[in-house]
């Protein structure tokens, strides 16, 4: 039993952080360069657990939390799942169905350049082919182009039920990253913004908001890593652990996203500042592989 990264994982993590800092800063989340996707593929992040690289989910979850902290494109989640379970390499768009099975409206994120989209259909991960000219405009989340297809085209389910858990795990990792980003942004601002002749972080009311953000982020991160290990181990409770990780990560991302705006005051309400990017990403992620109550309560078969 060991829930701390080993030295290789540490090295990978700090290399990821450095790369993101230089090439994919959060501050540019709403104007990502089209060439970014080729770079992400070159870095190997779209197929970490796929045949060829064969890394474990624990390593992948660590890295995806770091990518999520920089508001990396959401299509990375669907791409990684497709690469692992369907052999579709490269970019696979993220599909969200507004109904559980077929028909209804389909939302597609990060479609440009992708031939397929992956989403959850009736509890299983499934793929659909995309029209070649599908583009999109940002919706609530400003970091990804969103396209609509109505009615949704048919999907082909991937055979392995673990693909759905993988999707839930990686979206939990992204949400954990958002919670981390919001915590750090709030703490940094609380150190530099001065009122009443001192940094606002001196005031206990703000300290305690920030401390609660740290607690939520630590809770989410710990459960994320445990869930990833459970999935790696083929643990009988892996479904419960991944669902719990997603539930806590979504909560942490939304609550920290909101708290971060509060800590920023007026500037936090502006389109120009960055806090809303975290909050909006958090809201989008709650719709990706949402956890089921029965699974967390241990009632599901």
């Amino acid at each position: 039993m060991d829930l701390t990264p080993n030295s290789e994982q540490e090295a990978l993590l700090s290399a990821t952080a450095d790369w993101c800092h230089d090439n994919m800063p959060l501050e540019q989340a709403r104007s990502r360069h089209p060439a970014l996707w080729n770079q992400l593929a070159d870095m190997g992040w779209l197929g970490m657990t796929a045949p060829g690289m064969d890394l474990d989910h624990a390593t992948e979850a660590l890295v995806f939390a770091e990518l999520g902290r920089h508001l990396a494109p959401v299509g990375m989640i669907s791409s990684a799942v497709a690469a692992r379970w369907s052999g579709h390499q490269g970019k696979t768009a993220l599909a969200l169905l507004d109904r559980d099975l077929t028909g209804g409206l389909l939302r597609v994120y990060d479609a440009p350049g992708a031939t397929h989209a992956l989403g959850l259909v009736g509890g299983l991960a499934a793929l659909t082919a995309l029209p070649s000219d599908l583009g999109g405009e940002p919706g609530l989340d400003l970091s990804a182009p969103l396209a609509h297809i109505d009615p949704a085209p048919p999907f082909t389910a991937l055979g392995d039920p673990r693909a759905a858990l993988h999707l839930q795990l990686l979206s939990a990792a992204f949400a954990t990253g958002v919670a981390d980003a919001a915590r750090d942004m709030a703490a940094e601002y609380a150190k530099i913004r001065e009122q009443f002749e001192r940094p606002i972080g001196w005031f206990q009311a703000l300290k305690h908001i920030c401390a609660d953000m740290a607690v939520r982020a630590a809770v989410a991160k710990s459960q994320l890593l445990y869930a990833a290990c459970a999935l790696d181990a083929g643990d009988a409770d892996a479904g419960f652990h991944v669902a719990s990780a997603k539930h806590l990560a979504d909560q942490a991302a939304i609550d920290n996203g909101r708290a971060n705006i509060q800590v920023h005051g007026g500037i936090g309400m502006t389109d120009e500042a960055y806090p809303h990017l975290c909050l909006k990403r958090a809201h989008l992620l709650t719709f990706v592989a949402p956890p089921e109550r029965a699974v967390i309560l241990g009632e599901a078969a």
Binding site: A220, Q223, L225, Y226, F240, H241, A243, S244, L248, I296
Partner: peptide, 13 residues
């Protein structure tokens, strides 16, 4: 139930 699981994960960490 989710939080208790996370607490164990935190303790293990």
């Amino acid at each position: 139930r989710a939080e208790v699981a996370a607490l164990r994960a935190m303790t293990y960490r």
